[in-house]
Design a binder for these strands. Structure first.
Lengths: 326, 326
DNA sequence: TTGAAAGCGCTAACAC
DNA sequence: GTGTTAGCGCTTTCAA
């Protein structure tokens, strides 16, 4: 099944391939030549080969995105932001989902590099840092999302939340609601999780409220939420702060499964806004995920000479899940 | 910023480009030659150019996916299914979000064709049918999701839900819960919406319950949900059946905003399962979205000679939002 | 087992 | 204006 090439069109229109190329890309051609070429192209159903074009440019017009898990509300909004800007610039988005298959992530970065993507957005942990760094060194702009870039290097940018501020916002809110004993749920030990925990700790400390180590539990997968919560609620806890949007459903469900009513028996707040949060009255600290995605894509398209480290401020969306504010 | 080419590696290893190619792709080469080549490749940080490779194959190793709006739970799960199978086969996924910008969709199909995708998954309305048909005629396997393929043609497959069955399932459930006056919400007039409505109508008719035209309203965008519901609830309605997963949040919110309590004041059920449905007790008719995505990707990778029209059966997940079953 | 040479579909100099 | 000629980075005959 051979496809129509530029040569076929040229032959059909009685011109050279170069002329066809000029017609298609807006060079200087006589009007009736152009007409003949367009007609021939339409008749032969000619679709130019973008792959071949990219060879000359040295790279494709596609932005690569590597994401842990699209099901997280943050990543989904991030993705939409990237897609929007890409689309507005005539770029495409190539996407790979790691699903936390560690070891696979590095291979995916490599694959994106082989595709000669115009730029790469990575949201994985630091396992990919070395490969991403080399890619940036090779001239491909890369944006690390959700944590600061590991080192200052040309073509290597980052887009992240002020995670400490997010933690502080949560602490301030639960204190304002009259809570004193806070339980914290994180997922794994990624820097963002550590920083948010630290923010909570500092925010509470300023009000003289401690956050002992046993008040912080890690939930690695959804099905371990119940067990982790059982441990967390061994000691009296007024309010549970979930520092990871990925675990919101599981933690909320585990709370309810224990027969706890929110906010009457226990307060609850989490990270990342989501479509059902208003309906459920769940208070969240939101990241400007959509905006972050847009900026990430813009960094790739504009690729400023100076490496950029963009930090975004979180926003508290107070609803009813922590009880009334006093 | 010139990147390392196969020629650079060849020169460094003291062999020809052809030999390097053979080493990289597993041809017959003497062992110590291979060793020298691998060493040179590593030293020069050689990353093969997949774009150039694709020129020879005639097409890339990427599966294109065109989706209306990723925020819909169905599409997100579909996407995950596609990605999974693609990944398992060493394929990548290239993704475009139309966001219902009509007119843009056809351009996006064309763009995917220009990228010489290995295959294309389209979820848009029929505006793209002509272009997709030509793509299939040109040899690229295409899969239309959520409605049957418009015509039987080689390389053109479809993956869809049995929408009439979905409507019947809903009708049977609301009848079993003792409801008699059903209000239906659809979004636009796409075939899937029409078929589901028809299913509801037939299911009710068999029990002698009518579904008059004024019992069906269309909600085109989220912000029009309240107005549409006001109209729908002009007449007495026991239960609202939302036939589009995309509008679940908006319709549910509009119901609650009217001061209606679910299921005490009014029953509610919708299409497509979602993460928070169990927590909210919302009954849904689910599509096997993940499975459908996998099958779509498999159709592209295996591309059977006979055009396939796959139909999937919906499943009722009964929870509490329609009241107790009698 | 290896290299030289041709060519994939397209663009970009350089002539005419 | 338009055609000719070189490539882009890689694979694939075809000889050696």
């Amino acid at each position: 099944m051979k496809r129509t090439t530029i040569g076929d069109v040229a032959a059909a229109a009685g011109v050279s391939a170069a002329t066809v190329s000029r017609v298609l890309n807006g060079g200087a051609v006589k009007e009736d030549t152009a007409t003949r070429v367009w007609a021939a192209a339409a008749r032969l159903d000619y679709t130019p080969n973008a792959l071949t074009k990219s060879i000359f440019a040295g790279r494709s017009n596609t932005i690569g995105v590597i994401i842990d898990d699209l099901r997280s509300p943050f990543y989904l909004d991030l993705m939409r932001g990237i897609d929007e800007v890409a689309d507005a610039n005539g770029s495409l988005v190539m996407f790979a989902n790691t699903f936390h298959r560690s070891g696979h992530e590095v291979a995916q970065v490599q694959t994106m590099d082989e595709q000669r993507v115009r730029g790469l957005v990575v949201t994985t942990g630091d396992s990919t840092d070395e490969r991403t760094g080399r890619m940036a060194a090779g001239g491909t702009p890369c944006v690390i999302v959700a944590r600061p870039a590991p080192e200052t290097q040309p073509n290597l940018h980052s887009v992240a939340l002020d995670n400490v501020a997010a933690g502080r916002l949560m602490a301030a809110h639960v204190l304002a609601c009259g809570h004193r004993s806070v339980g914290v749920v994180v997922s794994g030990g990624r820097p963002s999780q550590r920083d948010r925990t630290e923010g909570v700790r500092r925010g509470l400390a300023e009000a003289g409220v401690p956050l002992p180590p046993e008040a912080v539990v890690s939930v690695e997968t959804d099905d371990r939420a119940e067990a982790a919560l059982a441990k967390l609620l061994d000691r009296p806890v007024d309010v549970v702060a979930c520092l990871t949007g990925r675990r919101t459903v599981a933690v909320h469900t585990a709370l309810v499964a224990r027969g706890l009513s929110i906010p009457d028996d226990i307060g609850f707040l989490t990270t990342d806004d989501f479509a059902w949060a208003p309906a459920l009255g769940i208070t969240v600290v939101a990241q400007p995920a959509h905006r972050m995605g847009q900026r990430a894509a813009e960094l790739i398209i504009d690729n400023p000479g100076e490496p950029a480290r963009l930090t975004f401020q979180p926003e508290l969306l107070a609803r009813t899940s922590c009880g009334e504010r006093r």
